[in-house]
Simulated scan of single mutants.
Amino acid sequence: MKPIYHFEKAKFLSLSSLQQHNAFINILRHLEEQACLQNLSPELIEMVEKMANWMDIREFGSLEGASPRDLALAAADWLIKNDRPVRDEDIPIYQRDGEAWGLQKRESASQMVVILSSLRSAFNTGSIFRTAECLGIAELWLCGITPKPGERALEKTARDTVQRVKWRIFDNTRDAVSEAKAQGRTIYALETAGTARQVFTMEYQFPNAIILGNEALGIDKAILDICDHIISIPVQGWKNSLNVGVAFAVCAYQMIWGCSSAPN
């Protein structure tokens, strides 16, 4: 059986210009993916060279000796200039390539839950799923209007991590905080409040729960009042806060890798 990227010259040249363009885009996407996965075949590289020559695309005139990284970047560069804007799900990523960095770090992450307090964006929620899976965090608790797994934008951004992270649904954030307290967790609210301590100077206790608030409204004051600690990320630019998904990643890595107390 011929591979999907195989073309004979006469057949390729009989295609319309648009069909040739689309065929070349498809093969470059395949080249980028396979190069990132270190799974390139000589036949694929040869076919890219031939198609580029038939279309007089000089950037791919000779690929002999190029490393997989160079091939992936060359394909990505051409696609950026000639294809639609890249989406997150278009970018190939390694699967199961995480490293074990010690039992204490893994134990710390396993004693954390993240409470999402009525987040608005499915993209942010998906990003948080992905970060939580990378770190080995125990659970995500989805409160209020926070988007739920099954939403297309969330699933795309999470990149196949939804099935690998435990999650629960709560009608409201107060119920989630009450549950966390009943489990003996120290509650940290990530918020830009005036009384907040920097995430980099706090000594964290485990087990714990970290609350993330709505992108525009933040965390309700009534919830802040029942938290053990309020923490924030220092900024020194025009904006006073980071995107919630980015802020969570910064905070979570600090809680696990920074100046935290070892779990019991």
Rank of each mutant, 00 (worst) to 15 (best):
S127H: 02
L103N: 14
K148G: 06
F200R: 02
A209F: 11
V246H: 04
A153W: 05
A262I: 06
S16A: 03
R168N: 00
A66G: 07
K81P: 05
I145K: 12
V177E: 05
C143A: 08
N82H: 15
Q236T: 13
M47A: 04
I27H: 00
A252P: 03
K105P: 05
C36G: 09
W238C: 04
T157A: 06
E49L: 02
F12Q: 00
Q34Y: 08
E99H: 12
C251M: 13
I187T: 02
E179F: 06
I145G: 08
P149D: 11
N172V: 03
S261I: 12
A72P: 11
V113P: 05
S117A: 14
A222T: 14
N26M: 12
A262K: 09
Y94V: 04
E155A: 06
E43R: 11
L217H: 10
E32D: 14
G102E: 13
T186A: 04
S62I: 13
S16K: 02
R96V: 06
K181M: 00
G65T: 05
L79S: 08
D175R: 11
L79W: 05
F248I: 00
V250I: 15
K50F: 03
M55Q: 04
A252N: 10
Y94Q: 15
Q104R: 15
G194T: 03
V250P: 12
K239N: 12
S17I: 00
G237R: 08
Q104V: 15
A109K: 06
D77W: 10
D77F: 14
M112L: 13
L37Y: 10
A10I: 07
L15S: 03
W257R: 13
I231V: 15
A252I: 09
R152Q: 13
E139P: 05
A74Y: 04
A247E: 06
G218M: 01
S14P: 01
V246P: 02
L190S: 08
T146N: 09
V162W: 02
R152W: 07
S127C: 02
E43Y: 10
T146G: 07
D88E: 04
K11S: 04
N26R: 14
A109H: 06
S67V: 13
